[in-house]
Nucleic acid binder design. Structure first.
Lengths: 221, 221
DNA sequence: GATACCAGTTTGGTATCCCAAAATGGTATC
DNA sequence: GATACCATTTTGGGATACCAAACTGGTATC
C-alpha cells in the first residue's frame, strides 16, 4: 500500500468519524507528522479528498469541510435524480437474482447488531443498489453523495426508530425492484430519500447548538 | 496563476483538443519539460485530471484516457438523469428571465460562426442550463459529464446538419422551459440527449478505423 | 531464430530543501 | 487600552535529490 493511499484512507476515516471536527484547520505539516509520511503523499491525499468534498481550501490553507445544511438538501435532490435513474435501469433488467446480495445485507442486521453497523449497512444499501444498474457514472455519483452525507448521518444513528424505519423502507424498495415494478420502486425510493433528508435536516437543526459547542462548524441552510 | 493551475489547464486543453491522442502514455518528466514546471505541480495536475477522467493510471504510469464507446453510452444515461432533474427544478422557479442569458448564447451563433464555436456553445448550453437549477451537485455533474464527452464531440463538428439540429432542439427546450412546461421540456431534453448519443456513437463507430489510424485508442462498447 | 538473462536507463513514489507570502506575537506609540 | 508597526515563525507552493521497481536493449545460450 502506497503512502499516498495510506494517508488518504486514514485521513478520510478520521474526518468521517468526526475525529477531526468539521471546520477545523489542517496543515500539511500536521498531517505529515501525524501519519509519518512526507508532504508529497500528504498533498496528493488532500487533493483527492478535496474532490470528494471532505476538505476544502480556506485561502491558502486547508479546512475540513463544515457540515452544510444547504448542501445536504441539495445532495438529497441530486441523490433522488441519480438513484431513481439507477433503480429504473435495474428494474428493467431480466435477472433479478442480483438483488439477493443486497437482501442479504439487510438480513445481516438484527436487534443485536450495533448501531454503527446499521448505519454502515444503510449507506451501503444505496451504494450497492446503484451498482446493480451497471452504470458506472450513476454508481459513482451515489457513492460520492453518500460519502458526503455520512458525517451528518452519524448523528442520525442515535435515533433507533429512524434506523428501523429506513430498514423497512429499504425492504419495500427491494421487493418492488424484484417484481420489476419500476414506478412503484421509484416512488418508494424518492419518498425514502426525501424522508431521510427531512429527518436529517430537522435533527441537525436541533443539534446545531450542541455541535457548535463541540467545535464543529455547521453552516445554516 | 499558480504553476499547478497552469499545468492543469494547459494539459487539459491539449487532451481535449486531441493534441495528445487518446490512449497515449504520459510521463511526468515529459509534462515537466513541456510546460517548464517541476514535478510537484505536474503531479497535482495529473491527480486532478484523473478525477475528471481525462487521464488514468496504466499500471505505474499515466495514460490519456481512451475514447470509450461504452462509457459514452453510460454518460448519456447519466446526463439524462441529472439534466432532466436540473431542468425540472428550473421550470419550477418563478423567475424565468434567467433563461435570457442562455437564449443570448444561442443567438450569438449564426452562419458565419466557426464550427468550433458552435461546438463550444452547444456544450455550454447544457452546462449553463444546469446551473440555473441552483443545485450545485446537478450542475457539477453536468459540467463534468460534458468535459468527458467533449473529445468525442469534436468529431461531430464535421457534421454541419447535426450542429444545426442540436441548435434547434436547444431552442425548443428553452421555449418550453420559459413557459414552465416541465414535462414537455423534460421530454424534449431527454430526446435531445438520446438523439445526440445515437448520432455520436454511430459516427464514432464509423470513424473508429480512421481514429485508430491516427493513433487514437478507441475502446469498443 | 527464439529465448533467457543481465546491465543500463527510465519512471513514478517519496523525502527534503528553499522561498515568498501569510500568520503570529510582541512592542512602541498615541 | 487600543492600535499601528515590525521581527519572527509558520505555511503552502515549488524544485530537486534519491530510490526501488519497471522497462529497454543487447547478448549469450540453446
Amino acid at each position: 500500500m502506497s503512502q499516498m493511499q495510506n494517508v488518504e484512507r486514514q485521513l478520510r476515516e478520521m474526518i468521517l468519524a468526526l475525529e477531526i471536527g468539521p471546520g477545523e484547520r489542517l496543515t500539511e505539516r500536521w498531517i505529515e507528522s501525524r501519519f509519518g509520511a512526507s508532504r508529497t503523499p500528504v498533498r496528493a491525499a488532500l487533493l483527492r479528498l478535496e474532490t470528494e468534498g471532505l476538505v476544502g481550501r480556506d485561502g491558502r490553507g486547508w479546512t475540513v469541510s463544515p457540515i452544510n445544511l444547504a448542501e445536504l438538501e441539495q445532495i438529497a435532490v441530486y441523490r433522488e435524480a441519480v438513484e431513481v435513474a439507477a433503480l429504473r435501469l435495474t428494474c428493467g433488467q431480466a435477472d433479478k437474482s442480483v438483488v439477493d446480495v443486497i437482501e442479504a445485507m439487510l438480513d445481516s442486521c438484527d436487534e443485536n447488531t450495533p448501531r454503527e453497523e446499521w448505519h454502515r449497512v444503510g449507506m451501503d444499501f444505496h451504494i450497492e443498489l446503484a451498482r446493480l444498474s451497471g452504470n458506472e457514472f450513476l454508481f459513482r455519483a451515489v457513492r460520492d453523495a453518500m460519502t458526503r452525507l455520512s458525517r451528518a448521518r452519524w448523528l442520525e444513528v442515535r435515533d433507533e426508530t429512524a434506523l428501523g424505519r429506513a430498514w423497512l423502507e429499504h425492504r419495500a424498495i427491494l421487493a418492488a425492484t424484484r417484481l420489476g415494478q419500476a414506478d412503484e420502486a421509484a416512488r418508494l425510493l424518492s419518498a425514502h430519500i426525501v424522508g431521510s433528508r427531512d429527518r436529517l435536516v430537522t435533527s441537525l437543526a436541533n443539534d446545531r447548538r450542541g455541535l457548535r459547542a463541540r467545535g464543529f462548524a455547521v453552516v445554516a441552510a
